[in-house]
Simulated scan of single mutants.
Amino acid sequence: MAEQVRVDVWVWAVRMFKTRSQATAAVKAGHIRVDGERAKPATQVRVGSRVEVRGGERLRVLEARQLLLKRVGAPLAQAAYTDHSPPPPPKEMASPFGIRDRGAGRPTKRDRRQLDRLRGRVSR
């Protein structure tokens, strides 16, 4: 068994990213830190390393318990790390965004333009 593994390989192997190229792109973009330091794709992860993955709206804080070189099944992947992530915000905190009342019918042209403006899309 290897004593250290590249961070992009490890986060892909424990299923934080669907493809290895997505994991490498996330590392290059600065979304992954190893032991508090910004990581490069070749940064080494050791057993006990703390890996922070910022993907989407949530921060995942993982402690490496096992080093993996290949992608494995979900139960084995979850056994390879200890999750120290803060709990996700409750769904009540998320505001309903552009939701219409049930039975309100199809939106008018004016309603659609207002929804597009709300979502940040430019209307002609």
Rank of each mutant, 00 (worst) to 15 (best):
A104R: 13
F97K: 13
K28G: 03
L69W: 05
R112K: 13
D111F: 09
G73V: 02
D8I: 14
R20E: 04
R124Y: 14
V61T: 09
Q4H: 14
T24N: 00
S85R: 11
A25I: 08
A26T: 01
R6W: 10
A26C: 04
R65C: 13
Q44T: 02
V47E: 06
Q22E: 11
G120M: 09
G105S: 12
G48L: 08
M93Y: 01
P107R: 15
T19E: 05
D83T: 15
L67K: 01
V47A: 04
M1C: 10
V7D: 02
M1Y: 06
A39N: 01
D111N: 14
K40V: 06
A77D: 08
R46Y: 09
F97R: 13
K28V: 12
P107K: 15
T19C: 05
V7N: 01
Q114K: 13
G105I: 08
G98A: 11
A26R: 02
P86I: 08
V14E: 01
D35Q: 07
G55L: 12
V11G: 00
L118W: 06
R112I: 15
A79F: 04
R124I: 13
R100V: 13
G55S: 12
V5H: 03
M1Q: 07
A79G: 10
R71I: 07
L115A: 10
R102W: 11
V45F: 02
E37F: 06
V5I: 15
A23M: 01
V34L: 09
V7A: 07
T24I: 03
P89M: 08
R119C: 04
P90Y: 13
